[in-house]
Design a protein around this nucleic acid. Sequence first.
DNA 1: TAAATACTCGTAGTGTGACT
DNA 2: AGTCACACTACGAGTATTTA
Length: 682
Amino acid sequence: MPRLVTEKKNKVRFIVPPSDNQKFEKDNIQKEDIQQQKNKKEKKEETKSEKKNKENKKKNSVDIELDIFGESNDEQESQKSKKLKTQENKKQINKNRKESLLSEISSDAGVGAQEILKSALKQKKQKKEKEIKKQEILKIQGCVKEIKKSKSEAKKKGVTFNIQNEETKQNKQNKKKEEKKSEQENDNNEEEEEDIEQEEEEEQKQQSNLEKKSDKKNKKTNKQEINIKIEEEQISENQGQTKSKKQNKNQEKQNLNNSQQSIQLFSQQQQMGSQSDEESSINLHKQLGSFAQDENKKKWMQKGKTSGKFSEEELALLRNSVCRYAYSKNMTSQELLKFIQTRNDRTQLGTWTQIASVLPDRSVQSCHNVIRRQYNQNNYKGKWSEEEVEELIDLVELHGRKWEKIGELIGRTAGNCRDKYKSIGDRNHQNREKLWTFEEIIKVMKYIEKQLKSKFIDREKLEEFCQQNVHMLFEKIDNQKLNINVNRSKNSQPDPYLEALSNMINYNVVKKLNFEQIKWTKISDKLKTKSVDDIRNKWNNQLQVCILKDLGFQDKDDQLLIEGIKDQYVDFEKEIDWTLIENGKTPEQNKQRWIVLKKSIGTDGIYNQELAEIVMKLKKFYKDKYADIKNSQNKLIKVDQQIKNAQQKKENLKLNLNNTPQENILVSLYEKKYMNRKEQEK
DNA sequence: TAAATACTCGTAGTGTGACT
DNA sequence: AGTCACACTACGAGTATTTA
């Protein structure tokens, strides 16, 4: 069995609850040894009574579950021989399990008894299905190899090669869309802004038409009406205002089912016990205007939960919870892994909510995601090889965007495959070129303008620049190729294109923009020659820096400028010594900026108002602005308090975690094993 | 050494299929 | 047809690694 533990620099991943489970100390380990010996004695006396049978099954599961951490190959081989000997015992154990299931039904309160029965009955079916799946995978792998071979042969012969796929309906639809789009965009390669606008409108219309057609196919008349209305809104109104069918539907349902919700709320409040914190947090959310309505909507994806990276404590609690679940179900390590990785049956509904109940401040979905990653032996595979990338592309051609399947075939996680495919350019990966042209940069800027619905590029200056440098426009301008160092050292030459761009930008417009609204995938889809990561990195690392950081004035710079002028106590603007202002800008920049600031508060000319008046007005302006910032800071402080409360709850939960002695043994054995292996690796 | 790039992770929203 | 529990996807952001 492959090891589930992979290491990176400064990053160790483990399935075993690590040393942060401080409750399990050395004393426990000693006690465990004693108990283990006792257990062995008890194992020999298996057949005496049913109760003893139960206990023995659990102890066996302890031994089996140790496999979760993986063993070295030698250990595995030695264990294999042992396992062969104990196969007969396993059969008995399986028999005993069924009996134990029946006995648990009468006693178990946590898990539904019927579910257990059903799961026991469906185990056989599952095994058969899994075998069939394995056979399918083997077949597919064979197909991929054949395709590769035939591809390479075809390349040698100089013949163009097309893979004949078994296309799903979705693929066909996607291809139709792509074809139409590509036809249009190929026709309009040399496009101007108006052409871009027309394209977008046409695309939207086409999309809406396609959606209508698909809906007609589905014969969902009620949904049709809603869809059409929404689509009309999409065409006419802002993109941000449009919402999905389901959201609208759910909102309608919410309005209708207010009474039911109130009942749910009441029952939940009764369950929660301490209401003060909850109420305060809910009120906070209402103040922030975000998700008060959506609360209690779904347990799976709950808004208002704590967000951010999972702490080690949280991870340990989660892993512990998973172990306890596996323990309660008498799962072997492999069974547990299969349970985590495969889609669960209806017979096992609610298991994840049960497991995630250890962390009530996290959504079940995020807990599920974390566990799926942590227990996935395909996670953390590192860098992609070229072969892997080719295989990925082939598999996407074969199966479409079914990442779970592809990930299984490649040996990486689904998310990993999806992200990689995106990073190499998604559907346009064949057209992707790493190097940037000036034309592409301008296109990106224009798309951003389009999305933010404002224009910050000076068209006249752009045209002038283009006329001056026409011969350079189509050259690759990647800095690495041209050996131009951008901001790598103080003495380096500035990139001529970025310098030119900086002169084309209207900073007054830029300052009011909210760049967080940019949707990179849409830009990538339109540009076709760059991946999402390419564009976002270019923007974050060069373009935005060029616009905001180096050449633009930020609030702090403005405030320093105003205070610098005020501190000089001069009566007239002519008397200002611009060199005394220390905000990192040149005197000339500050002089120009001063004119802009004056215009922003509506002063007509230099001599119409006294200098002191202007300064006071500007200071007021920034005071008000600062007040807004303070308000938002107060909100943040409240949120911090909320988080602290949540942390306290977690600690309380930790204290309340009363493991059974056997569970303590399990976890501490995990810990012991983990430490041993770490020492071996060292 | 810092920029550029690649990899990884978490969240919010949408889609899906079995069941009632 | 509606519900539930999960899977899939888009996106943003953080971090590690590579490169000039």
